[in-house]
Design a protein around this nucleic acid. Sequence first.
DNA 1: CCTGCAGTGTAACGTTCGTTATGCCGAAAC
DNA 2: GTTTCGGCATAACGAACGTTACACTGCAGG
Lengths: 202, 202
Amino acid sequence: MASPEHTRKRILDAAEALFFQQGIAVTGVDQVATSAGVAIVTLYKHFGAKDNLLREVLSRRLDAWTRHWDAAIARADSPEERLLAIFEAVETFRAAANPTQWCCFLATASERPTPEDGRTDPVFELIRQDTQLVTERLAQLAEDARCTDPAAVASMLLLLYNGVLGSLLRGAPSDPLAQARKTARLIIDSLAQASPDQAKES
Amino acid sequence: MASPEHTRKRILDAAEALFFQQGIAVTGVDQVATSAGVAIVTLYKHFGAKDNLLREVLSRRLDAWTRHWDAAIARADSPEERLLAIFEAVETFRAAANPTQWCCFLATASERPTPEDGRTDPVFELIRQDTQLVTERLAQLAEDARCTDPAAVASMLLLLYNGVLGSLLRGAPSDPLAQARKTARLIIDSLAQASPDQAKES
DNA sequence: CCTGCAGTGTAACGTTCGTTATGCCGAAAC
DNA sequence: GTTTCGGCATAACGAACGTTACACTGCAGG
């Protein structure tokens, strides 16, 4: 009934849920173990330290998020829809995975001291990877959509994406994904094949 | 050299900076006291408990934010500009106050367990007040601007506002305020006195 | 049968944290 | 000159936390 990987997964699931529903620092290791139905010793056999556990949770999360976004892009059938796929991905991802308050990476960044220059923190490295993934992908998708100003479109969509995540945490607006999709369509329609004169301004 | 109120303010300033640059739970009371240049005993004489300190920091922050927003609205000279004033307020507020990573209220919500129904947490009450302030004000301003769908405009602007805050935390896009202003203008121009047919969809 | 593995329970250690008690100092007020 | 007030230093307590050690159980495979 308990293969090592299954135990591992249970611990990761419990940690993900607790860390990002109530906060990382405020969640004790024993609470994670109890919620996963394992002994504290078992948790430490698997992960060694709380920070490693957090790192593996975030790493798994980054993989899952990438796959969901990949799938959403693959389902879309036009460059414009592929730009909007990020919001589809948020929806399917939240439906499939352990529902957390909002974004695990931003939540971690929020309650963790930024490492002083020179120091390299593997957890912050994952946060950086997440930001890099979203930034570069949106830039690429905006280019593929032949926008007149791809960089501007990418920036605005990243702003909307961050807005969706922040809105999930705040609880308002209540339907951030719908609002983001509407706004994104507005942006794309205005800056995609729009007349070049109104695309020039700052 | 040290009036009681001055000492109080120094403690609040230090707490605000530390809490929201590196996280609340991760910041010890002694660290706040040291940073403020006061003794731990003095801090407890003034606030009694860490949670009260946090509450007063947030309360002061809500007041200051309200005032900055008021001023930005007063400076604007058209209904559309008054809708956009929230982004001006973010800018002047961040320039004037202790610069924090992002939004104190969302940061607090992120690392704090949501109180179970029935329980009433004064800190969460302040978070709720912040959300209520932003929501209601944007709705009112959208009405004043005679938008065809004021509720939709208010929701989108709240999404953008949350996007600005989240982007500040993420560090990308690098100029969230500029992106938000551009996007907001797009929204307002499209849904303000726009032709009623395209305002009906979804 | 015995070896090895995955997991459990208990207990403990060292640290940090929030909080409080005690006693002292310096300056302003009467 | 003494009282009062705001603040400081030290020390301590109890609780919680991250972490580890030790001894035990149950099960699979040779």
